[in-house]
Amino acid sequence: MSCEETQEQVSLLIDAELEEPHQVALFRHLEGCCECRLFFDSMLRFSKAAKRDLEEIRLVADDILPLHGPLPVSVRAAGDGANSLPMHPSGLTGRRSHRRASEDAVGALPDRRSGWGWKRWTGLLAGGWRMPAPVAIGLALVLLVAGALVGTRISTIAGGGGPMGRDGRVVKPTVVVVCSLPEVQVLGSASRL
């Protein structure tokens, strides 16, 4: 086998396109040919360096390429939903971590905003405001207690009864509920009628 043929086969071997029977003859030639070994070594070093070069450029690319590119607004919006990435005010991405880059390399991330998780539910409870679950639950309880208290007093007053004061007059309690979401204040006061 000539050096020309050998080097052609080296090229195929690096691309994983050389069939096994040919590989035996190739390596036999390489054992005794310094020039072809040098070519083989050179191409292996090139492949290795190219992989490293690729990784470095991809990291730099994350910094300089716009998140969505010069695309129509509808596509930009779709992109926001597609990977939930924060949009820098300048329209450019910031440096992301290696993990982030590798995730992007294999595909876009799932839409984290599309689920009906606890945040969505607590958001609804709070009338559209986002707030932590404990605050939302506490708020709901306060509203419940305040509602029950008002209902009780109203029924008491409507029934003609009510607590008697020391002077024998009926005390009409007034519960003022000031509801200003997301903060609720229950102001209780009793006025003597």
């Binding site: 695309l71 509808s74 596509v75 930009r76 919006a77 779709a78 939903g81 597609a82 990977n83 876009a108």
Partner: peptide, 8 residues
């Protein structure tokens, strides 16, 4: 358009 954004 969402598919396009992922491809981009």
């Amino acid at each position: 358009d969402r598919a396009f954004a992922i491809l981009y």
